[in-house]
Design a protein around this nucleic acid. Structure first.
Lengths: 190, 190
DNA sequence: CACTGTTGTTAATGCTCATTAACAATGTGG
DNA sequence: CCACATTGTTAATGAGCATTAACAACAGTG
């Protein structure tokens, strides 16, 4: 084969994230995916057992990267205020650098089959709870349901950036999001 | 007919919004829609020319309600700070009372055929520009691209609430969102 | 060089689904 | 009571698409 190798699998995952973000899981055919990596559709089945399994792998990968990135940052910052800033910077960088991944991540969970869906949800929950723990140390007086709700809202704020066409350059965008998200969170937690 | 009348059309629109929000436009069949209003699938074609036209009507209706609701509120409040608060309260009420509509509104535009899509986009743009105008009066020093970007982010924050399962009751939720969105916006605009 | 695992290709297969056809029931205005 | 417009129903029709089958090209290993 002219062009195979281990990279093919990664290329498929990348292309899938891009296409799923653009048109949605059901709006992309196996044939589309194949064409995007220079093969025909059915060739995909040499790498993934089904289209759904492919989506599951994309989401699993994203969730793991977010969670582990967060863990590293929290571990590196003993002070909760510093940890929060680090979490914000990490999430913002992810959202700005991988807009397709962020988009797929919060739109396509419903198309994943039950078993991997549970694993993905567990990772997402762990990611959120990490933020909750930091906020709880920073603002011990605030009830956890309030923190969780505020966090979901802030993720909505941060994850919306792929859809706002780039009127601002990356650095100004990152700074704006950081300041908005930070004050929104601190306002929520008195 | 045991149960027809003018209400059928509205019932279809309501059911469609609900189902599209839950499973996405492509995840809902004509047969599903029919069943949801107590008929068979093809009966829909007595009320709408196509599935896409049905979606377009849902989105058009939402966009118009948002825009006109906003216009009324802005007109009722000469002071820009009051107008901003009123816009926030209006959008929050809409998001909390009609979570399905808000969800469909910011996920399914891509499935609308070109012609109605343009009309919907125009309405959405007008809605945003209304907020921009209020913010520009309130914070004359801030560049419009910054305002627009901040607004998109705040809409992401507000529209995320359908997905955060109700850990808080409606009033506490509305208050939390209001405070977060308001400070986020005012922070963005210096 | 034969042997085998890997990765592709093209041609079925079969299902789902939007849309249309053909036909029925109801209710309304004449 | 009789057309006729409305709104349904069930049975095609036809497209799209995930998946599988059958077969080919190649790479590395003995």
């Amino acid at each position: 084969m002219r062009n195979s190798g281990a990279g093919r699998r990664e290329a498929i995952l990348r292309a899938a994230a891009e296409l799923f973000a653009e048109r949605g899981f059901r709006g992309v055919s196996i044939e589309d995916l194949g064409r995007a990596v220079g093969t025909t559709g059915p060739a995909l089945y040499r790498h993934f057992p089904s289209k759904e399994a492919l989506l599951a792998e994309v989401l699993l990968d994203i969730s793991e990267r977010l969670l582990h990135g967060g863990e590293d940052r929290v571990a590196a910052h003993p002070d909760p205020a510093d940890a929060l800033d680090a979490l914000l910077h990490g999430h913002i960088a992810f959202a700005l650098d991988e807009p397709a991944l962020i988009t797929v991540h919060d739109r396509e969970l419903g198309s994943v089959p039950p078993e991997p869906r549970h694993r993905i949800r567990r990772l997402q929950r762990a990611y959120v709870e990490q933020w909750v723990a930091v906020l709880a140390r920073l603002r011990p007086g605030t009830a956890e349901p309030v923190l969780r709700t505020a966090l979901h809202a802030v993720f909505g704020l941060l994850n919306s950036t792929p859809h706002s066409a780039g009127e601002l350059d990356r650095d100004r965008m990152a700074d704006l999001l950081f300041r908005m998200a930070r004050t929104a969170l601190l306002t929520a937690a008195e």
